[in-house]
């Protein structure tokens, strides 16, 4: 079943064609369900849906490259990206894989990027594809003063 209605898919295709300045990698971290109950471990309930949705989105633009990582079989990759929850989506500029820490911080989304968070995903892809951030000059000055790592978590609820 398609997530996006044909009219919505067309809107997303047009938006990606207009907004993406370069190629982006979208990396989905999700482990397939085992069906086993293991105390202390929660199986992802939306990982498969997230994969289906992101596959649709990647099919709408040649500039969007989807990679699916199973954190159970590739824990080193999940650790490199600082993944804590399943499903997780990382967005980064194409080619920055493995070196993106030097060029940009981590951009992650935890959970199915549906509802309003679908727009957040498209915004992240747009921002990652651009050579310069769309932030106020004063904001860029302020951010350049930082010397220590900062972790920002924005808790949202899909609508």
């Amino acid at each position: 079943m398609a997530f996006l209605r044909p009219a919505d898919a067309e809107r997303v295709r047009k938006r990606l064609a207009a907004d993406l300045d370069g190629d982006v990698d979208v990396i989905l971290f999700t482990a397939p369900p085992t069906g086993l109950f293991i105390p202390g471990r929660n199986e992802s309930t939306t990982g498969k849906q997230a994969e289906a949705l992101l596959t649709e989105v990647a099919g709408l633009s040649d500039r969007v490259h989807l990679r699916v990582v199973n954190p159970r079989t590739e824990p080193n990759v999940a650790a490199e990206y600082g993944i804590e929850l399943d499903p997780a989506v990382v967005v980064e500029k194409r080619g920055s894989e493995g070196t993106s820490k030097a060029e940009a911080g981590r951009v992650r989304m935890y959970g199915l990027p549906s509802g309003y968070e679908f727009m957040t995903l498209l915004d992240a892809m747009t921002a990652a594809s651009r050579p310069t951030p769309s932030l106020l000059p004063d904001t860029l000055d302020s951010l350049s003063r930082m010397t220590d790592p900062v972790h920002i978590q924005v808790f949202v609820t899909p609508t």
């Binding site: 600082g82 940009a104 911080g105 992650r108 989304m109 935890y110 968070e117 904001t139 949202v156 899909p158």
Partner: peptide, 22 residues
């Protein structure tokens, strides 16, 4: 989206958007 843009502008920042209901 602002948090994500901060992370893209400053390598020292990691920005997570978390679905609180999930």
């Amino acid at each position: 989206s602002l948090a994500h843009q901060f992370a893209l502008a400053q390598p020292l920042i990691s920005a997570d958007v978390v679905s609180a209901s999930e």
